[in-house]
Simulated assay, not measured.
Amino acid sequence: TLWFHLTLDILWVVNGIVFIILLFVTGHWMRIVPTSWDVFPNALSAGLQYLTLDWPTENGWVHYNALQLLSYFAVVFIAAPLAIISGFRMSSFWSKNWTKASQLYPAPLARKIHTPVMLFFVIFIVIHVVLVIGTGLLRNLNTMYASQGDVDPTVYADNWTGFFIFLGSLVVIAAAWIAARPSLLAPVARLFGKVTAR
């Protein structure tokens, strides 16, 4: 299970690196990096609007509101690097020979960072899923899964394409979850080193 965790972590980091490269190469970094101090009062305003359950009407295909912008910025540029740095410190990749580095960055400190970051991701995902459902499931799934949207915020792709792609991804995730059993993982993990049971 530790091997599986580290393997998924490495894939997550590689995916993140590709995402960051594409973000800057395509110029889409401006969608999630604040470029004005106005983002803070605007995010407060959007947050109050969310709390009233009067959902903001911006088309995410075209424009994120300030709260979304700050949220995605926090996930990509704050939480993800903290998860990587703290996870690396606690992993087997951190050499026991790095005594000076271990004194400067002890494992208990890494755990104190890693756990709240994990909770942040869980809370972000729960809120994100609730808002995807509550602000127009078909439209949002089409935007995220089928790359369908329109520059006109009053025109949305309300077909079922994104929903069925999403459903397919859930089936793949469920199958992977079922397959992630020690009896199936151990033979693969043995290809990379010694496997022990606890």
Results as ranks from 00 to 15, higher is better:
Leu82Thr: 04
Ala176Met: 14
Leu44Tyr: 09
Gln148Thr: 08
Ser169Tyr: 06
Pro56Thr: 00
Ile165Thr: 10
Pro106Lys: 14
Ile178Glu: 05
Trp29Glu: 05
Trp3Tyr: 13
Leu185Tyr: 07
Pro108Glu: 08
Leu109Tyr: 08
Thr143Gln: 12
Val126Tyr: 05
Trp177Pro: 03
Thr99Lys: 15
His5Trp: 12
Tyr105Asp: 14
Ser95Met: 13
Trp3Gly: 06
Gly149Ile: 07
Phe24Met: 07
Phe73Thr: 00
Val117Gly: 01
Val172Asp: 05
Val122Glu: 00
Trp94Glu: 11
Arg111Lys: 15
His128Cys: 06
Pro108Ser: 11
Asn140Tyr: 05
Asn65Pro: 02
Ile125Glu: 10
Ile127Lys: 04
Asn97Glu: 11
Gly193Asp: 12
Leu138Thr: 08
Ala43Lys: 00
Leu2Gln: 11
Val126Leu: 15
Ser92Arg: 13
Ser92Lys: 11
Ser169Glu: 09
Ser95Ile: 08
Gly87Ala: 09
Arg198Asn: 07
Thr7Ala: 14
Gly134Thr: 07
Gly60Lys: 08
Phe4Ala: 15
Thr52Met: 14
Lys100His: 13
Trp61Ile: 09
Gly47Ser: 09
Val172Gly: 08
Thr161Lys: 14
Asn142His: 07
Ile178Ser: 04
Phe121Trp: 11
Thr143Phe: 10
Asp152Gly: 09
Leu170Thr: 05
Leu23Ala: 09
Ala197Phe: 09
Val132Asn: 08
Tyr50His: 12
Leu104Asp: 15
Gly134Arg: 11
Val188Met: 10
Gly134Lys: 11
Leu167Asp: 03
Leu170Ser: 03
Pro106His: 12
Phe166Cys: 10
Val122Trp: 03
Ala43Asp: 02
Pro153Trp: 03
Val122Gln: 00
Pro41Gly: 10
Leu8His: 09
Trp98Lys: 13
Val130Tyr: 15
Val172Met: 14
Leu119Ser: 03
Leu8Tyr: 06
Asn140Asp: 09
Asn59Leu: 04
Gln148Asn: 05
Ala197His: 10
Ser45Phe: 01
Ala66Asn: 07
Leu53Ala: 15
Leu2Val: 07
Ala175Ser: 13
Pro41Val: 04
Val25His: 05
Gln148Glu: 15
Trp12Ser: 00
Lys100Thr: 13
Val39Tyr: 01
Pro81Thr: 04
Arg181Asp: 13
His5Met: 10
Leu138Arg: 08
